[in-house]
């Protein structure tokens, strides 16, 4: 069937079996390979994308369900200015804090964390780290022990608030 969707702000159309996974549509049909497959069972979060603004596992979305919807992948996080790429706050923080090691879980974490800094009030309070841990629990990383990723997301949330003019 023909599926029209918006991916990272651009209108795209594919002709696919409606049971095909969004993950495969992104990776194979649209050649957006930043979205990774770690398990195919909705467990590891490496394939996290935003579907109509909400973080979902792309391995558990049928292509047919994407018609008319908006998808954001890791390729859509960075912005552009002066002809060059500008990393999203969470990407910059993951880089600066050492939150990426082997990197295979990193795109999913970046996408999920981008939603967190947009949608959730992550402050500098004592509960902030626990909140980040609960919200990112659907993204498994085997390299970092999570510590430096939590550091990065808390830092990105602070950068976001600073960017919005908060003290």
């Amino acid at each position: 069937m023909k599926v029209s969707l918006e991916v990272n702000g651009a209108a795209r159309a594919v002709d696919v079996d409606p049971w095909r996974r969004l993950l495969d549509v992104l990776r194979e049909d649209l050649r957006l390979t930043g979205t990774k497959e770690g398990c195919g069972e909705g467990e590891c979060g490496a394939c996290t994308v935003l579907l109509d603004g909400a973080p979902v596992n792309a391995c558990l979305v049928a292509a047919g369900q994407c018609h008319g919807r908006k998808v954001t992948t890791v390729e859509g996080l960075a912005g552009h200015a002066d002809g060059g790429a500008v990393l999203h706050e969470v990407q910059a923080a993951l880089l600066a804090c050492g939150g990426a090691q082997c990197g295979i879980c990193t795109p999913g974490i970046a996408v999920c964390a981008s939603w967190i800094v947009d949608a959730e009030p992550i402050g500098a309070d004592a509960g902030a780290r626990a909140r980040v841990r609960e919200l990112l629990a659907g993204n498994i990383c085997r390299c970092t022990g999570y510590q430096l990723i939590v550091d990065a997301v808390v830092e990105a949330a602070q950068a976001r608030r600073a960017g919005e003019g908060e003290p």
Partner: peptide, 9 residues
């Protein structure tokens, strides 16, 4: 239930 991604779907 699951985590964020599963709760969203």
């Amino acid at each position: 239930i699951g985590a964020l991604q599963i709760q969203a779907r």
